[in-house]
Amino acid sequence: MRIGDYKVSYGADEAVFRTGTVRVWMIVLFLAMAVFPFWAGDYLLYMANLTGIAIVAAVGLNILTGAAGQISLGHAAFVGIGAYTSAILITKLGLPFIICLPLSGLSAALFGVIVGAPSMRMKGLYLCIATLAAQVIFEYLFKNWESLTGGIRGINVPAPTIFGFEFNNEFRFYFITVPVVIIVVTAARNLFRTRVGRAFIAIRDRDFSAQLMGINLFRYKLYAFALSSFLAGVAGCLWVNFIKIVTPEHFPLHESIRYLAMIIVGGLGSVLGSIFGAIFMTIIPEVLKSMLNIVSAFSPDAMAYLSPLQTVVFGLLIVVFLVFEPHGLAEMWRRVKDYFRLWPFEH
């Protein structure tokens, strides 16, 4: 049971990590993340990098959809814009990775504002369909603007170098991904303690009331689109530098839906939820694969069912979470924590 939680200043009450226990656990977490790459093999590191990149994108989508309440079916397209911007800047202009990272974000943010502009007049389902149209149109551009994007062959990117040090394998790239994830998560967590973040939540809860309280709806919706696609762009830049090739097939509508599924399963509007969701949705297909691997020892053609089973499980997860746990894994986590916080006095 948590005791001695007594605050004498506003600063202590507003702090992100409010108690000593939390701070200790955070240090443990950081240590674990620092030790992880030395312990894990290439495959685990590969997954860790992908998960980290997914976390960045999911946090971005959660700002737009979870916090500000604007549904986007085009998030993968913004990740794609970031990836292509980075690939083009690196291969055609030879810019270094460290400059490409923010530039990819900015270019995605620019397109985010363009796609978000109709939100001045539309909302809800109509806006949702408008973002679907954006997804389709960008996908088409990736595929067909061959002089810029290389068409279906895509663009190959060399391994990123920072100050002469080449980040050319999973192990090394981990030390790019993790700092970026930490910065993004910290920034997002703090965003909701500022006017802008609070305004997003007000818009989600009731846009008219928010407007009456002096929030410029249009401007803040555009902020939400810009911020969200900025993070998507950063994720895209990381992704292309990690995978080293970008093709249009990497950013289909299904990918947008996967990001939405992450924040639904993780918890809408919660930064922690985005992290949980991204980890969960990246791990589940792998778990399924290893389960089928065990089954295929008994019936050899079990692996043929992998792809359809993954599709079914993916859909089931979304539906089951929405029906039984609409606040997602973050809420489950909170309940578990509460149980231990109050233990042994549950009631």
């Binding site: 359809p308 089973l309 599709t311 859909g315 929405l322």
Partner: peptide, 8 residues
């Protein structure tokens, strides 16, 4: 989600 289930 439903569409994904049906497709699978």
């Amino acid at each position: 989600g439903l569409s994904s289930i049906l497709l699978g």
